[in-house]
Design a binder for these strands. Structure first.
Length: 293
DNA sequence: GACCAGGTGTCCG
DNA sequence: CGGACACCTGGT
């Protein structure tokens, strides 16, 4: 907390914002932060959000609202925003259109989607998603975030010397981690999963490029083959790393909703090809049912 | 100090 | 194949 506060002061001092962009449609930074899909995305104070991805850091803050769009201050050039962050935030997908597919008859889902308005499915680095979601198992979100940051500090590149921000390590960087590094990360039984996966990617027995070519079913099965990756983690990797919007991760919260709200009769394929977006609305809606952020 | 956290591998019927 | 059970560690 102290570090974040320090970070905020630094941001102000350096007047970090460089340009402005207009963003149209569903877009809520706080909701994205709490949507559970991203682990290096944090509010650092005063409405300023910081996210680290693709070896870059972005600071972004809403400046003001117009009726159908909003203006955001950003720490990069407009050009970089269009080249990198436009896709990251999935700004070419019309989430309002997806929300409008939900019938009012389904009261729970309709309310959940209203409540979640502004959540988007970020397009994140597939490798980072594989590693992060293997780490995520049987951890709460603060613990996941901490573990990911420690891993980045151990093996990533220093991309901001002042604020000590590190990039997410590549398979090569993780392959070269010492035993001491692994111990520092304190990943417990997940370490052996990651070591195995890292080795496969290091020796190019599997590549991200080859995975990207696969259709949903084949990709799912290929991910399941990875040591330490089960159905839930594979679905998350597909949704958040490969942007397979039909992938429907079922964690404890979703299972609870499917049982309590739908008596286990929810048609998981009803909103194809956007079942994963619907899942995300349900998951964010679980905040109202007692899930903690 | 328990108890549990966005699960998965393993073993057993 | 479905159901138990152990599992590292840290947060509440």
């Amino acid at each position: 907390m102290q570090e974040l506060f320090q970070n905020e002061i630094d941001v102000k001092k350096q007047n970090i914002f460089q340009s402005e962009v207009e963003i149209i449609g569903d877009f809520d930074l706080k909701k994205i932060e709490n949507s559970g899909e991203v682990f290096r995305f944090n509010e650092v104070g005063n409405g300023i959000f910081c996210t680290i991805a693709f070896g870059r850091v972005l600071y972004i803050r809403k400046k003001f609202n117009q009726t159908d769009h909003a203006i955001y201050e950003i720490s990069c050039s407009k050009q970089e925003f269009m080249d990198i962050w436009y896709d990251y935030f999935d700004l070419s997908t019309d989430y309002e259109k997806i929300r409008n597919m939900i019938s009012k008859e389904d009261k729970f889902l309709y309310n959940a989607a209203e409540y979640s308005k502004g959540v988007r499915i970020l397009i994140q680095d597939p490798w980072e998603m594989i590693v992060s979601f293997v780490i995520s198992q049987r951890k709460n979100i603060p613990a996941i975030k901490k573990a990911v940051e420690t891993l980045c500090e151990c093996a990533g590149n220093l991309i901001d010397k002042d604020k000590k921000i590190y990039s997410f390590p590549t398979p090569e960087q993780m392959y070269n981690m010492s035993e001491e590094d692994w111990n520092k990360c304190a990943l417990g039984y997940r370490t052996k999963y990651l070591k195995t996966i890292v080795e496969q990617f290091y020796y190019k027995e599997i590549t991200i490029a080859s995975l990207q070519e696969l259709d949903d079913d084949k990709l799912y099965n290929k991910l399941l083959d990875l040591y330490g990756v089960g159905p839930k983690v594979a679905s998350c990797i597909m949704l958040f790393g490969f942007h397979r919007l039909n992938s429907f991760p079922k964690d404890v919260w979703i299972l609870r909703i499917l049982e309590e709200q739908y008596n286990n009769n929810f048609d998981l394929d009803k909103y194809s090809p956007y079942n994963g977006v619907i899942q995300q609305y349900m998951f964010y809606g679980s905040l109202e049912l007692g899930r903690k952020v």
